[in-house]
């Protein structure tokens, strides 16, 4: 029981950021799970390491919410892969979450900055 609770808290913690990053990654091109991981790692100069154990549940969650849609296709190196595409609702969600994140970051930044000063 307690492990489930821990897990749920971890998901909650990640939800805001990981979901946002996934949506952002899919903004211009459909991408498969591995591609999303690689893309996030590269763009953050390997500062963010995506936990695979969280990535796929997150993808499933986003799909259930209707923000992304999935279809099987063939990847660049000729392998079968499940490609995720941003839906219209997902695009809206990305905008909302981005603004929210910016407000949060700014607020936290202010507090941290004030403390430092």
């Amino acid at each position: 029981m307690s492990t489930r609770r821990d897990e749920q808290e971890r998901i909650a913690l990640l939800q805001g950021t990981l979901d946002l990053l996934i949506l952002r990654t899919l903004l211009f091109d459909p991408q498969h799970g591995h591609g999303i991981t690689v893309s996030i790692q590269r763009q953050s100069d390997n500062a963010l390491l995506v936990d695979h154990g969280s990535l796929y549940p997150a993808l499933q969650r986003l799909e259930d919410s209707g923000w992304i849609s999935a279809a099987w296709g063939v990847s660049d190196n000729n392998r079968k892969a499940r490609f995720y595409t941003l839906t219209k609702a997902g695009r809206k969600q990305l905008g909302a979450q981005t603004r929210q994140w910016e407000r949060l970051a700014a607020a936290i930044g202010k507090i941290l900055g004030a403390e430092e000063a």
């Binding site: 498969h32 799970g33 591995h34 591609g35 690689v38 695979h52 796929y56 990847s75 190196n77 392998r79 079968k80 892969a81 499940r82």
Partner: peptide, 16 residues
């Protein structure tokens, strides 16, 4: 379906 997706992920990572 999900197992296949993970399989595909591992294959991509191996190639990378």
């Amino acid at each position: 379906d999900f197992a296949e997706e993970i399989h595909s992920h591992i294959a991509h990572e191996t190639k990378r």
